[in-house]
Design a protein around this nucleic acid. Structure first.
Lengths: 187, 187
DNA sequence: ACAGTTTTAGACCGATTGGTCTAGCCCTGC
DNA sequence: GCAGGGCTAGACCAATCGGTCTAAAACTGT
């Protein structure tokens, strides 16, 4: 799926993030994953001794960082909080379209579909908390009170979570673009 | 998982709905499923000639009907729309707790995690549209305009979708109970 | 040039996957 | 009481699952 000039470890993470996001943890087999990453089995178990589960944790973290970067980029150019929300939702919608209307939330698809495992669950919760914290910080920077900013951030990310799901079922990104209008935005 | 006085077909559907909802389509194997339903393999392929996928479609429809019934029950006793939303979210939260904080949205866990299949996707979209229609009807009955009711219903179900996901990652139903406060409710 | 480490390569493994198929049980209507 | 369908029972299957392991290639510092 990507430039094969990248080190094997990174190719594995990227391929895993992409595939898990589309089909979920259990929906992706090692053969398919290694084929996509253009890597042999030995490399995977060298870089990720615990195999699939290690890789899933790493892939979720990597994808989550990507999302955090998109949040930062959206709010960096924003004049106020609602403006940032608008930009973010449209960016997410665009990525969704580029993926062929297949990708859901990178965290939940990878980790919550996985083994009924406390570690996975907590990792997912931690990453999602990061998103809230990041967004809240932007809200505060743009003049909101801490409480206002946190509440609005939580509300937006809940909608985004739902939006990803609904968009996937409809194979249509319109829901995602409609999200900003549904929020009563503090500014 | 349930009274074994039920006909085999129903036991299969119930077991499938429960398991898929917890671990997703690919996360559940036939052996486990048959064990839970206390049914032999032959019965499954008699009642559902296409096997797992047929069963998943039936299970999702059954679970979706259950949810529709909960929606109806919540709004039936409601004096206005916001009241119905409140009741519904609390009921969902209670079910979530009873399931051991494990169950997500019955539709998406069963169908969107499944094979990258147009039939599954469309079935999921159809069932979710039913929820919106049902809720919208209650809104209109309680005095809202069609447009108001539909918009509010969509917003609530998006939050519910997100709430299910977040609640699962946190193993805590508080998010679900907080949803009514996040909606700016028409009444 | 050589030794030592890191990374690649893929044959191989037992377990489990979803699915097929043949027998026969069981319940119905006669 | 017996004939015929609906349903159950589970042995059986090829394919795939995630994972282990040995051997050598590739890169490192000296």
């Amino acid at each position: 799926m990507k430039t094969d000039t990248l080190p094997t470890r990174d190719r594995l993470i990227r391929a895993a993030a992409d595939l898990f996001r589309r089909r979920g943890y259990h929906g992706v087999g090692m053969a398919e994953l290694l084929e996509a990453a253009q890597a042999p089995k030995g490399s995977l178990y060298h870089h990720f001794p615990n195999g699939k589960s290690d890789l899933a944790l790493a892939a979720a973290s990597w994808a989550s960082d990507g999302m955090t970067a998109v949040i930062d980029a959206s709010f960096a150019e924003a004049t106020d909080f609602p403006d940032g929300v608008r930009t973010l939702c449209h960016k997410v919608a665009k990525f969704f379209d580029l993926s062929g209307q297949a990708e859901g939330c990178p965290i939940t698809a990878t980790l919550l579909d996985g083994p009924e495992n406390a570690e996975f669950r907590q990792h997912a919760a931690g990453l999602m908390a990061n998103w809230v914290d990041t967004t809240t910080a932007h809200g505060v920077r743009l003049g909101l009170s801490e409480a206002e900013a946190r509440s609005a951030s939580e509300h937006m990310l809940l909608l985004l979570q739902g939006g990803w799901t609904v968009a996937r079922s409809q194979a249509n990104s319109d829901v995602l673009r409609s999200l900003p209008d549904r929020l009563t935005l503090p500014h």
